[in-house]
């Protein structure tokens, strides 16, 4: 099957690739572009481990086709830090030990970034519902919620 030529922007960089028409954006990121930060936990949009931001919208990249990224802005966990400086959320996840195995962490960071962009001062309940599309099996979410609360406080003051 002939590949589809796609021109897109990923983490601020212009990127071009060929992909199959039925290939997911997650597979393109992971298998063609070497961006393995987004994880496949289910492939059906239930776990959120592959969360990315597509033109300011939080999506599961396993439910988006690679061809659909044409002309759009893609943001993945690899784009969150600036050089050596971690994003506040990344720093707070480390400080609060908001990860154990860490497989869900890229998805949570992206979902939390999207949440705080839209609601900079969320209540605990808003954080819990805002992150309800991301599964974590290790932490019981307690330390994740606290990390996001702490990050929100720091980011508000910035």
């Amino acid at each position: 099957m002939a590949g589809v030529a796609v021109s897109t922007t990923i983490n601020g960089d212009h990127v071009e690739y060929l992909c199959q028409p039925d290939e997911t954006l997650l597979d393109v990121l992971r298998d063609r572009l070497g961006l393995t930060g987004a994880k496949e936990g289910c492939g059906t949009g239930d776990c959120g481990a592959c969360s990315i931001i597509l033109d300011d919208r939080l999506v599961c990249s396993c439910l988006v086709l690679g061809a659909e990224a044409e002309g759009r802005q893609v943001e993945t966990v690899e784009g969150m830090a600036h050089g050596e400086k971690l994003h506040t959320l990344q720093q707070k996840f480390l400080e609060h030990a908001a990860l154990q195995c860490g497989i869900c962490t890229p998805g949570f960071l992206i979902a939390a970034k999207d949440l705080l962009a839209k609601n900079p001062d969320p209540s605990e309940e808003e954080i819990r519902f805002g992150l309800a599309g991301n599964l974590c099996r290790c932490t019981g979410y307690d330390k994740i919620v606290r990390a996001v609360q702490d990050a929100a406080n720091v980011m508000k003051g910035a």
Partner: peptide, 17 residues
């Protein structure tokens, strides 16, 4: 056989522990 129908707790299901 999937996370939609085999539903593990999500963040909004739980309190602080």
């Amino acid at each position: 056989a999937g996370f939609l129908d085999y539903r593990i707790p999500v963040c909004s299901d739980l309190p602080m522990i």
